[in-house]
Simulated scan of single mutants.
Amino acid sequence: MALASPIFEILKNFSEDFNNPVTLTLVFDRANLEGNKKLSVFYYDEVKKDWVEVTGGKVNAGTITVQVNHFTKYAVFAVGQGATVPAPDTKPTISFSDIAGHWAKANIKQAVSSGMVSGYLDGTFKPDHTVTRAEFAVMLMNVLQPQGTEEALTFTDTAKIGSWAQKAVAQAVQAGFIKGYEDGTFRPAAEITRAEMVAMMAGALDNLVEVNAETDFADNKDIPGWAKASVALVKQAGIVQGKGDNQFAPGDHATRAEAVTVLLNLLALKRS
């Protein structure tokens, strides 16, 4: 049995199953269709820690369509006669159609395998797309996996935070990683800057490294005062490196590839 698609995590904003079936169409890779293998969609049962086959899938060109009554992690597997589903701790091969030759390919595959982030239903990862503040909060909390209750959100634009991100944002607020803007907003859909990304991560380091309030980046003067200590902290911790000519570029928007790379560095440091 072989994984024939990325693993997609699909969420909704209520806990109950659907009253009526929902049509789900997933893209798969035909390279795994050797011999007498057939394609089937599976979902991951979080309680039993096992993959469960969804019956009745209809294959059409490069996609397979099934009817489901709930959302969770889904993937397409190429199944041979007598094949068994991989054990829950098996790390299946992650394949996206748009990461070949990308500088962050290995990091992307590791991040998806760890559950930090998911790909898109069209089989892409979009590594160079920018990350919103809400999206980065979710990635960060997937890495840290905090325990306990969440802080009640009091941002003036809380209603604009998607249900898929509210828990993560609340956890980040409770932990002190997020404070929002001076006008009381969080701005969940705003593209996160490198300075903002680093400021969110810095709180997770606790006292793992000592830090000076200045950095040795060539554009140190351009780093906002509120972010300077955070930038220095993550730089000294080896989590974030500069761009060309030793520039930190604090106002540049972080991409999905950059985000998963720095978060993997954070995870490695926390585990060391």
Rank of each mutant, 00 (worst) to 15 (best):
T132H: 08
V173I: 11
L269S: 06
K221A: 15
A259T: 01
T185D: 02
S272H: 09
G101L: 03
W51C: 09
N69W: 12
H129F: 11
G57T: 05
N142P: 09
K126Q: 07
N212A: 10
L11R: 14
P188W: 01
K12Y: 07
S118T: 15
D157E: 09
T156P: 02
F8S: 03
A199E: 14
P88C: 08
K270Q: 12
R133H: 04
T23A: 14
K91S: 10
Y44R: 12
A87R: 07
N107F: 08
L263W: 04
V143A: 01
E196M: 04
K243L: 14
G62Q: 14
A75G: 10
F18T: 03
G57M: 06
A227C: 01
L33C: 01
L33A: 03
M141A: 07
V68M: 11
K270C: 06
M201T: 00
L264F: 02
G162R: 01
R256T: 10
K160P: 02
T261M: 05
A257I: 01
V143F: 00
G123T: 02
V169W: 05
E151V: 08
A75D: 10
G203K: 05
L233W: 08
S118D: 15
P21M: 14
V198Y: 07
Q145P: 09
E46F: 09
Q171E: 06
V85Y: 12
